[in-house]
Design a binder for these strands. Sequence first.
DNA 1: TTGAAAGCGCTACCAA
DNA 2: TTGGTAGCGCTTTCAA
Lengths: 342, 342
Amino acid sequence: MATTIRDVAEAAGVSAMAVSKVLHGKGANVRVGAETAETIRRVANELHYQPNRLARSFRQQKTHTIGLVFSHFGRIGELDGYFAAFLNGVMSATFQSEYGLTICPKLVKLSANGVINDGRFDGLLWCKPDYSVQSAESIERSEIPIVMMHAPANQGPNVPRFCCDNDLGLKLAVEHLVELGHKRIGFVMDEFNRSTAEGRARIAGYRTAVAESHLESFDGDVLFWDIDRSKLDQMMTKEQRPTALIVFSERQAVSILREAEALGISVPEDLSVVGFDSTAFCDTTRPRLTAISQPIEQMAYDATNVLISNIEGNPSPSRSFIYPCGLDIRESTARPRISVLR
Amino acid sequence: MATTIRDVAEAAGVSAMAVSKVLHGKGANVRVGAETAETIRRVANELHYQPNRLARSFRQQKTHTIGLVFSHFGRIGELDGYFAAFLNGVMSATFQSEYGLTICPKLVKLSANGVINDGRFDGLLWCKPDYSVQSAESIERSEIPIVMMHAPANQGPNVPRFCCDNDLGLKLAVEHLVELGHKRIGFVMDEFNRSTAEGRARIAGYRTAVAESHLESFDGDVLFWDIDRSKLDQMMTKEQRPTALIVFSERQAVSILREAEALGISVPEDLSVVGFDSTAFCDTTRPRLTAISQPIEQMAYDATNVLISNIEGNPSPSRSFIYPCGLDIRESTARPRISVLR
DNA sequence: TTGAAAGCGCTACCAA
DNA sequence: TTGGTAGCGCTTTCAA
């Protein structure tokens, strides 16, 4: 069995309290002389004493661990920089403050119910939340701080939320394309994100931007693409086809690039493509991908730090943190061919 | 304060034991009638009873959590598929068995000492281990199972270890290049991995493969590149320059591709490049990257499952699990230009 | 079929 | 300057 604080105390001829004080600085009133302290440290070392973190956490009601919750936790994409950037931000903040980071299974089913108040975490970072009633209730009843990533400002429970300015991002993308001479600009996303808060926010941003640029909307301007891959082909063979597509994510944008290649549509000559989440990855595609940027790592870093502040009793007012989007122009966008413009 | 098992017991007019039995099946000797059980469940529900996992873990000495240790935990690469594949394997195994997964700070400094026996984890997955004496001692003294990833077979502590067949991988790469007509093949890696077990294994594999193919070794055949970027330029402007480079990782291979582009060296015409870790990412580079493959996700999945088996008392014999490498030929390798062959 | 008691390892609180 | 006591929430063990 592992050496306990009592073993050390006994061997050093002192009380358990003295050991706790010397090794962990606990026990505000307790004072220990320099010699005694030295003995305690020596004995602890000799016995290979290892403080039991579980017992300490239990006693102190403080685990120094943050839980990471994804509303849908499938696979991590190998093909985009999003998760890496996100995790880099989260890890750098948690590790700076010497917290641990735990990723839990089954968070979907539980709607985080089982995780919010089970004592394991000092706080929860919730990424891409859904807004089921059940979740909202759990969150309201939470005894630990919660912070949300990619949660639009004006819905859901009242916790700090971090989000990029989707409207701005889409506006920049549409304006860039319009400047190049595009008149028919489509938006492509996967079926899943149709029900996501972020998905809806981006569709809305797209429609607003298109309207503000006085472009005509057209049939199938928002394409849900992952179910039926032939849709893209159908769309592109129409007489009046879009000359540019804005795509929900890097990953999906790459799929579009490949699909276009397979269909003999050359990017950017026959079709301009804009992605979302401009990471280093966009420089590796061919052609290099023009993309809307959001400062993912910074957002994750800030969100985690706000969470930690809240945990440590410096509450930030529960409010929304909105980050501006940018547009990184690379090679996948260009003037449309005249022939296509009709 | 949170509802405890005693609150429930009191409200239901039974003992705490009865509640524990009904809600968690604990207490082998305890029996509870169907009606009483129903009452208990109802009351627990009404009071929003949430079992305290910390207390349970503490009592049972079982946390249902696995610790993830990296010998050097800097940033996750956004530009390669390695980490995503690794984490996908680990997560899918942990979550299937309903374990949690914790990533800890400061693992470098502590050499995992502080983490091995502090009660937080049921087992440890150690990735890319170094072999300091300190680490070895900690591991020997560990009271929980440990499994190692990317640990060569015949060195370090006696725990299950998972590794790819680096010799085979390098052999395949060299043979492929020799078949294409290459005579001078270099190996490129970063300074850090020089001291890594895996780094040394790959250098050794490279040298063996080159020798077996009866190629002459040459000055600077193993290039440590990240410190001094001009080295590549120097090497490529030599009269007798390598016509092909095998690179330690995807990420570094991409850097080489870019550097070559910047220097006006065209790949694969003037220089063939082979990477290590063939993930989907290699299809997105330009030119698409020929790469040595190892089944990262499968290895991570298997390693995690072996760890869980060990935790749950079905020890696998502590032995090495070696996975074969393959070679995925894409576009970054070709016959060398005659002019270069001299 | 049920309950009481004891204690996991540690630290807040109170007493000396 | 030091130590004892009690108890965090739960479950193991023993008694009824």
